[in-house]
Write a protein that binds this DNA or RNA. Structure first.
Lengths: 198, 198
DNA sequence: ACCGTTACCATACGATTGTACTACAAAGAA
DNA sequence: TTCTTTGTAGTACAATCGTATGGTAACGGT
């Protein structure tokens, strides 16, 4: 049954297994053997789809970023006609650990971020930078808010956008470290958006 | 020459070696052998001061948090008579990766934070929670700012304090991931403080 | 019908891991 | 001085790591 398998899908299954492991036990526990057990296949088969471990991790990051991007776009559709600041809130909440799914996603993302702290190759990865693409979206929506007079005079979209993403990441970290709970993080985010609104 | 050594100091030397390793090559590379080489002593001697690896990492975190705390208090003395919001800026800048020393410190901190994502024991560690002690300081100074009319009406100290620390952590992550440079992060922080000030 | 490609597996290899054990020299207590 | 503690080191061990290799079975193309 060789030709029958969809390579892309198989790689996806494996990458999901890595992500599941990273979310529950940390990236450091994602050895070939553990990944194989989690994915329900042999170690050698994982080698077959991703030759080396670095490629496995890179592929996982790639997958994670596209899945996350798709989820955000989907969420955004539900708020298509909402005012700009409301759209920002929607995306922000999709990014933050509001439920188990998004919590795991953020855990995986932060695990990779930690690895990237000491790995320049990982830092310049396209898939990794894509995670910051939301900055452009935020800036665009902030400008739209300014255009309709919803933005505070003292707020500069070019500065508020990266600050907003930073705040989101920081809040997410706080939630995942049990510093405050999910609801509280949402309140804090709302407070910040309040500061930004006219 | 047994009794002559100061246990606390020796443990400090070793913990510093671990921190140096974590900052440059990541926590995952901090094996007993690597730590021994970095500290310039035998593996068995590290076992002697910290029995197990978990204890070694815990001790390193403990040390890192006290050293960081001391550095912040020292920085704070230079701004003892400054207005509240200026004191906040001082502490924030001491926390953020503004130079190589603070960059390494933040890298170490974030590495431990990543481990804590999937390690409940580490998350509830006293040394770890102490890292969040600055929230109390921020809230206190924000209240002081409100008392003298320096705080924006729409800002609530109880909410702005944790949000501020979250922003700082997020900005720091951005800097260490080469998302924006140190100066830019400083500007973004100033922009946020601007939003908070009356 | 046959052959080559391909998905999948079992296993082995050398390196590295955390930890345990033993030894020894130096110094304070007796 | 002798004895006991203690700082330091060498080394051995089982486990786990990433990776390489060889083999098997099933399909697609000819």
């Amino acid at each position: 049954m060789p030709k029958r398998v969809d390579h892309q899908q198989r790689r996806g299954e494996i990458a999901d297994a890595v992500a599941r492991l990273a979310a529950t036990r940390g990236l450091g526990e994602a050895s070939f053997r553990e990944v194989a057990a989690e994915a329900g296949m042999s170690v050698a088969n994982i080698q077959h789809y991703f030759g080396t471990k670095q490629a496995l991790l890179l592929g996982t990051l790639e997958r994670q970023s596209t899945v996350l991007g798709a989820r955000i776009l989907q969420q955004l559709e539900t708020a298509q006609d909402a005012p700009p600041l409301e759209q920002i809130r929607t995306v922000a909440r999709a990014l933050m650990p509001t439920d188990d799914v998004s919590s795991d996603a953020m855990r995986v993302y932060l695990s990779f971020a930690a690895s990237a702290l000491t790995d320049p190759d990982l830092r310049t990865t396209q898939a990794f930078q894509r995670g910051f693409a939301s900055i452009a979206f935020f800036e665009d929506r902030l400008r739209a808010a300014a255009a309709v007079g919803d933005l505070a005079d003292s707020a500069d979209p070019a500065a508020a956008a990266p600050a907003l993403l930073s705040l989101i990441l920081g809040l997410s970290l706080g939630v995942l470290l049990d510093q405050f709970d999910r609801a509280h993080a949402g309140t804090l985010l709302d407070g910040h958006l309040e500061l930004l609104s006219a």
